Simulated scan of single mutants.
Amino acid sequence: MTAELPSSGPYGIVAVASSAGGIQGLSKLLGALGPELSVPVLLVQHLDPRHRTVIADVLARRTDLPVKLAEAGERARAGTVHIAPPDRHLLIGADGVLTLTDSELVHFVRPSADLLFESVAGAYGERAVAVVLTGTGRDGAMGAEAVSSRGGTVIAQDPASAEFSGMPQAAVDTGAVDFVLPLEEIAAVVRGLVEVKRQ
């Protein structure tokens, strides 16, 4: 069952975090990633748990990649966007299997980008790419440090170009960010990183 796990190449996973303003940012990022991404994408977007979410349907109309709410026990699939459901933390293990948990809030939010990034750092180490987009608050900053400390690559949306600068600025302030980019340039860098393995 390990065929789904990318076993060669420098990168094996992309994790993305966003909050306020995120749907527009995610639409642009995912829409520019192209239809043949060679690694899974795990996504935390802060959502109101009181309402049924349509984020997977909305984003699926803006990208050629399959988009779905993550399910506990499923294996992350290359070229698929797995979104944390409302009010559930999304984690991944070294075997590529996803876990959902309703453990306590982290920085007042669930799902937490920090927990996702920390699990990605632990499972993939230097083969992880973490991306922090628009949002308020500090979620994702500690996780960015975790990814960086394990040798992974961290990308932040340029806070000056973000609809809400709090999250990307907090990540940048850690010193753990490798690339600070306008939103429209992030997808090309992500593709360049993960597609190196094909050469």
Rank of each mutant, 00 (worst) to 15 (best):
P6D: 10
P6L: 12
S7K: 13
G9L: 08
Y11I: 11
I13D: 02
V14W: 02
A17T: 13
A20L: 15
G21W: 10
I23A: 11
Q24C: 03
G25I: 00
L26H: 04
K28C: 06
P35K: 04
E36P: 02
S38F: 00
P40F: 03
V41D: 07
V44H: 04
H46Y: 13
R52T: 11
T53W: 05
A56N: 08
V58P: 04
L59K: 00
R61E: 12
R62G: 00
R62V: 01
T63M: 02
V67R: 02
G73H: 05
E74R: 03
R77I: 04
R77A: 14
V81E: 01
I83E: 06
R88Y: 15
H89L: 07
L91H: 12
G93H: 11
V97S: 09
D102E: 15
S103D: 15
H107P: 01
L116C: 05
F117H: 06
F117G: 02
E118G: 00
E118W: 00
Y124W: 13
G125S: 14
A128I: 06
V129H: 08
A130N: 04
G135K: 13
G140S: 09
G143L: 10
A144G: 15
A146L: 07
G152H: 08
I155H: 05
A156M: 11
A162N: 08
E163N: 04
Q169G: 00
A170C: 07
A171M: 07
A171T: 12
D173C: 05
G175D: 12
A176P: 03
D178N: 15
F179A: 00
F179K: 02
F179T: 01
L181F: 09
I186A: 01
A188T: 13
L193F: 05
V194W: 09
V196N: 10
K197D: 11
